[in-house]
């Protein structure tokens, strides 16, 4: 049994009278790729936002590396080694690639000036180039170019390499392949495998079950705010998983009924 990087127990979150998250429990092991699946409105996004510090749960427990933690802000989550790549682009399009890569963690000189400290431009550019080299995108892209000049896949590559840069224990990918072309999608899936190989744990949220079978070790399935299934993907198949998402046994019905 590998060590759990993330373990959540009985998380609950309501917005007014709407309960978005009822009773969510699952864990992500070290170096494991876990797919979080569920139909629209199943509570996946809310759950991700709780883990990444955007929302606070009403009740329940989050443990990172076995220790119970209190995640009150996105900063807290990042400090714990949780990096999230959101589907609605995690990048600021008007900023350069280098400035996006280090947004919120800019290398500075005279650090005692706090937010007013000057950014160390040389270090910023150097670190950006090293990072882009490591993930194999330095040839095509110029670190000083604004992100608005990049394609969707290039933007995801930047966001993912940023998550890897900070040696995150757990990387959460929220629908990373939405709106991407076939080649770009394969690029992202290749990144996921590389991250796993590099020892990162990954929580992968997607609608595309075929992608899940390509990269994930295990699937956690949510329905109406609850985790309804948690199964290893080896020995499972698409129909079974789709049935769990919808809450029906697809195999019991005629295939073309």
């Amino acid at each position: 049994m590998t060590k759990d990087i993330l373990r959540i127990s009985n998380l609950r979150k309501s917005f007014g009278s709407v309960t978005a998250l009822k009773n969510a429990s699952f864990s992500v092991g070290e170096g494991e790729v876990v797919a979080l699946l569920g139909d629209n409105g199943a509570g996946k996004s809310t759950l991700i936002k709780v883990i990444s510090g955007v929302y606070r749960a009403d009740s329940g427990e989050i443990a990172v590396n076995g220790a119970v933690v209190d995640i009150r802000s996105t900063r807290d989550a990042m400090a714990l080694g949780i990096e999230t790549i959101h589907q609605d682009s995690s990048l600021a399009p008007d900023l350069s690639i280098a400035r996006n890569l280090f947004l919120g963690r800019e290398p500075v000189t005279m650090g005692w000036l706090g937010p007013f400290a000057p950014i160390n431009q040389v270090e910023l550019r150097e670190a950006a180039r090293t990072l882009m080299q490591r993930v194999g995108i330095s040839k095509r892209l110029n670190a000083d170019a604004p992100v608005s000049t990049l394609s969707g896949g290039e933007r995801q590559s930047i966001a993912i390499s940023r998550a890897m840069q900070f040696a995150a224990k757990l990387i959460i990918l929220d629908e990373p392949t939405n709106n991407l072309g076939v080649e770009e999608t394969h690029g992202v899936l290749r990144f996921v495998r590389e991250m796993k190989a590099a020892g990162h744990s990954i929580l992968f949220i997607t609608h595309n079950i075929h992608h899940v079978f390509q990269v994930a070790d295990r699937a956690v399935i949510m329905r109406r705010g609850e985790v309804v299934a948690d199964l290893p993907l080896a020995g499972s198949d698409v129909l079974k998983v789709e049935g769990l998402i919808m809450g029906v046994d697809l195999k019991a019905e005629p295939a073309h009924g």
Binding site: T74, H86, L91, A92, R105, E106, P118
Partner: peptide, 28 residues
């Protein structure tokens, strides 16, 4: 000019105006 172009806060200001959610997600 220093604040906007050279300082850390300038990067935050531009990022907030460019994509607020992205900036918040980075802890700005």
């Amino acid at each position: 000019g220093y604040l906007l172009n050279r300082a850390k806060i300038g990067n935050w200001i531009s990022a907030i105006g460019s994509n607020r959610n992205a900036a918040v997600a980075r802890g700005v």
